[in-house]
Every structure is written in structure tokens, then in C-alpha cells.
Amino acid sequence: MSSKKDSELPVPPKSGFSRRGFIRGVGIGSGALGTGLLETEAAAAAPATLGPGPVPITLNINGKPVNLTVEPSVTLIDAMRNYLDLTGAKRVCDRATCGACTVIMAGKTVYACTVLAIDAQGKNIETIEGLATGSALHPVSKAFYDNDAQQCGYCTPGFVMACKGFIDEHPSPTEEDVKHGLGGNLCRCGTYMGIRKAVLQAAKEMKGAVKNG
């Protein structure tokens, strides 16, 4: 939905919360205008439509700004894989079901197949490629390595990032927490026992004691 179209719509109800307002808040406020405009200004200013042709954007990936030119319909996963040669995250279901494309955006784990690249501007994006510093493995990667928490490895980059995001938010997870924290990622090889052990090990490593492990 373009903001131009939005401005032609009737004024939102007074409650200030409507489906349209919500969409505007999520879809536009967080993305195309993430470059500085305030949401209230968005409705009034009606900036130019983006697309359908390619537009220049800047993504902040693993602490570095990268410039690229993509159609507004390009998802973050496709931008990473097809334009930036960041092929760690995988495009598997492409519909926010499996988590193989998981990256961390502004501190939250997201499915990169369900975020538009233009909406990811202005946010710090962490990918598996940025996880290791130097030659040392990140504690999460190390925990996957130590606990054989993978077989074919296709879900692994997504799982590693989901684990990192989960531990960042839940530094002392219980086994039950782990179950719910990682319910959005899928391993067809069924390595969940190893993954569960890996999360608990990584949490310990990253902070200290485990509450209920």
C-alpha cells in the first residue's frame, strides 16, 4: 500500500486505532519513512510513491551500511541473498512458517522472508555472517557445534539466529521456555534434542547460571 493512496482514504476514527492506522504504522511508519519522517507527518506529507521500479536503499547489516537498488517488493531475504551475497540465511517456505531465514532486526528476531527490504532500512540487522568475531565461534554456534544440533544444516543459520535472539531476551531460559522460544523454527531432520541442549549451553555461556536446567 502506498502512502499516496492512503491520503485519499477517509479520516481514521477518533479512537486513533484502526486497521488502516495499524497498517500505516507497521507498513509505512517503520519502513519507507524510517529515514526520519514522523508518522503523523506521513499522512499529511504524502511522499512520492516508491516503485514499482528499483529504488536505492541503505541497509545496516552487521554494523555496516550497504547500499543497493531493489524493487520495493523485494524481501529482506532476497535482498540479502540475491544482492548482497549473504547466503547464510535460507529461503525455505517463504511464508513465515519455518524460520530458516531468521535474522535479528532492531533486537528482535524476524522472518526475513516477511520483511520488505525497504522496511528494514534504519534498523540494525544481524545475520549469521556477522555472528562470529575473528576466528572464535559465537557461543550459540559453538553450542550447536558441541551438541550436534543439526544434520543437513539447512535450518541451522536460522536456528542459530533465533537462539541468539531468544537468549538475548531470555538470558535464563527453562526447557519449557526454549520450547516456546524456538517453536517458530523448523528442523526437518528432527534435531530438536540437540538444539535444546545447545540453547541451554549457550545461555549458560552467555550469561551464567541456568534457572531450571
Binding site: G88, I128, A132, K142, F144, Y145, D148, G153, P157
Partner: peptide
């Protein structure tokens, strides 16, 4: 082959 898998460097 495991190191490449846990760091996203394994090429499919």
C-alpha cells in the same frame, strides 16, 4: 563439515 554449517558458510 560442521564448522561451515554452524556459521552459515556451507554452500548449498
Amino acid at each position: 563439515d560442521l564448522l561451515a554449517k554452524v556459521t552459515g558458510r556451507s554452500k548449498y
